[in-house]
Design a protein around this nucleic acid. Structure first.
Length: 560
RNA sequence: UGCCCGGUGGUGUAAUUGGCAACACACUUGACUCUGGAUCAAGGUAGUCGAGGUUCGAAUCCUCGCCGGGCAGCCA
């Protein structure tokens, strides 16, 4: 794929791996994992992590596991594991049979916990959640030791087993690591390893009523799988000390955790909580609404996996927080779509044009290139007749400076057809709105004919009225009006015009057979794809992204 | 106020690990064009958070500051 490999992507993580390879730290192995929690849909930020982890495995002849971090049955659901698998696969990555779950290791984790109890390094604590918080101390003050901290190993073993057997109610006890209540790193102040949760788990059912916490499960899962480089986001950096502590105390294989900065994208939100709120509060129509930064949303919008991977390569990986301009995402998309999309003519906001001097019943079949940049994509015929539609934007009764399109007395070229001249404007008597144009055409100027090489400034797209296919187009724009809508009042910045629906679009007839997810470039307008909900009766197109639009810039500049 | 992590143009990421700050996006201008697209060409924008120090030489090393972020879930 042309988009990939065009950038030699190196970063601090690859440098660490190079060094580990050089010193033979892991016998030449490179083994990563992508560990989503199945409690929501994947978004573009996860795509960065997926491309990082799977990309490293690919480039170093290593492996990357897909591992669901399913240690909290109260939040996780199978629906999410299915969507996650679909998204990772769609992005173009394959974990073969290495589909793992933290819950696969619950038995092993239980055994490990017993080992720690026997070493005197874990204990059953009867403090309530509130009490644990009080005893923990604050950022600046040390905590106090739990009164249950010095139980005998026998008592701990017995109580822990009874916890597992379901003899105690939720929240009544926990298993905690015995480390240091005055440690400057809060994670080391006797962190909870197990909590009691009488909840049934999507994989283990009712087998367990105690569940391991993230800190207790993650590192040991990495170890069991033989991961070499456990790559996670910055907020886990403080946990690395604990990650190392567990592995060292257990004296088991020790992977290394490396943290990088998560992706932030301008004009959108990335937190699962806010994404969920957008869905639940009906700002969007679902997780796969094309305005959502979710993988499923981008897919429905018409993004290609290649574009997303290319984007991931281009943004790099580092430890400083960053805010990537959506323009880079859109540029990555256009780069890909420009090469692969067949071009087609479609009129979004139709304006009727009658060509007065064109014979009433004549129909010509004109040749149009499917992609002028790639002759291999062939050509097609498009019908031309006396009555056509053009874009309302392509006519101005009073043309502004540098306006190259149609206006009274002025000429434009109809793409792949003739040069026409506007001779009359018909307006609605009440509203004064322009409802129809009368033009004449110059028969000497037919496209492809060598007779006339007459040039005009503008070329516009059109669709023959009698042959047009009706369609609905959904024009999407950024979801937020400001670059950084983080903060509590983020809802105030939701773009009210993030979706504009046009129901009277006219398409050239070749589009009649388009199927959901088919992608096209509507000439001069942008890239569009057929929506999943499209039916022959109600033909639906999503605008994936507009073409670069220098005219809008010129116009804006003129106004200011 | 404890601990951890960061600070290079408008935005990201680089800099052969101490050798005269590069690439991409964005922006501006022009060429070309039957897509105001694509393409091509040109251009502006940082002396690398600050102050000291080491050195022939510092974005890279040292010291002291300043600024931003994270951590007090039985969430991950």
């Amino acid at each position: 794929m042309a988009l990939e490999g065009s950038q030699k992507a190196t970063n601090f993580i690859r440098e660490i791996i190079d060094e580990d390879l050089r010193t033979n730290k892991y016998d030449g192995r490179v083994y990563t994992r992508f560990p989503p929690e199945p409690n929501g849909y994947l978004h573009i930020g996860h795509a960065k992590s997926i491309c990082l982890n799977f990309g490293i495995a690919r480039d170093y002849n290593g492996l990357c596991n897909l591992r669901f971090d399913d240690t909290n049955p109260t939040k996780e659901e199978v629906e999410y594991v299915e969507s996650i698998k679909e998204d990772v696969r769609w992005l173009g990555f394959d974990w073969n049979d290495r589909e793992y779950y933290a819950s696969d290791y619950f038995d092993q984790l239980y055994e490990y916990a017993i080992q720690l109890i026997k070493k005197g390094e874990a204990y059953v604590c009867d403090l309530s959640a509130d009490e644990v918080r009080e005893y923990r101390g604050t950022l600046t003050e040390p905590g106090k030791e739990s009164p249950y901290r010095n139980r005998s190993d026998e008592e701990n073993l017995e109580l822990f087993e009874r916890m597992k057997n379901g003899e105690f109610p939720d929240g009544s006890r926990t298993l905690r690591a015995k480390i240091d209540m005055s440690h400057p790193n809060m994670n080391m102040r006797d962190p909870v390893m197990y909590r009691i949760l009488h909840a049934s788990h999507h994989r283990t059912g009712d087998k367990w009523c105690i569940y391991p916490t993230y800190d207790w499960a993650h590192g040991q899962s990495d170890s069991i799988e033989g991961i070499t480089h456990s790559i996670c986001t910055l907020e886990f950096a403080d946990h690395r000390l604990l990650y190392d502590w567990f592995l060292d105390e257990l004296e088991i294989y020790h992977p290394q955790q490396i943290e990088f900065a998560r992706l932030e994208l301008s004009y959108t939100v990335m937190s699962k909580r806010k994404l969920l709120q957008l869905v639940e509060e009906d700002y969007v129509k679902g997780w796969d609404d094309p305005r959502m930064p979710t993988i499923s949303g981008l897919r429905r919008r018409g993004y290609t996996p290649e574009a997303i991977r290319y984007f991931a390569d281009r943004i790099g990986v580092a430890k400083r927080e960053n805010m990537i301009d959506v323009a880079l995402l859109e540029d990555s998309l256009r780069e890909d779509l420009n090469k692969r999309s067949p071009r087609v003519m479609a009129v979004l906001r139709p304006l009727k044009v009658v060509i007065d001097n064109y014979p009433d019943d004549k129909i010509e079949e004109l040749d149009a290139l499917n992609n002028p940049e790639n002759p291999n994509m062939g050509s097609r015929k498009i019908p031309f007749s006396k009555v056509i539609y053009i874009e309302q934007d392509d006519f101005r009764e009073v043309p502004p400076p540098k306006y190259f399109r149609l206006s009274p007395g002025n000429e434009v070229r109809l793409r792949y057809a003739y040069i026409i001249k506007c001779v009359d404007v018909v307006k609605d008597k009440k509203s004064g709105e322009v409802i129809e144009l009368h033009c004449t055409y110059d028969p000497e100027t037919k496209s492809g004919s060598s007779q006339s090489q007459r040039k005009v400034k503008g070329t516009i797209h059109w669709v023959s009225a009698a042959h047009a296919v009706n369609a609905e187009a959904r024009l999407y724009d950024r979801l937020f009006m400001i670059e950084d809508p983080s903060g509590d009042n983020w809802r105030d910045f939701i773009n009210p015009n993030s979706l504009v629906v046009l129901t009277t679009c006219k398409l050239e007839p070749s589009l009649a057979t388009a199927k959901p997810q088919d992608r096209f470039q509507f000439e001069r307008l942008g890239y569009f794809c057929v929506d999943y909900d499209s039916t022959p009766k109600r033909f639906l197109f999503n605008r994936t992204v507009t073409l670069r639009d220098t005219w809008t810039k010129i116009e804006k500049a003129a106004k200011s």
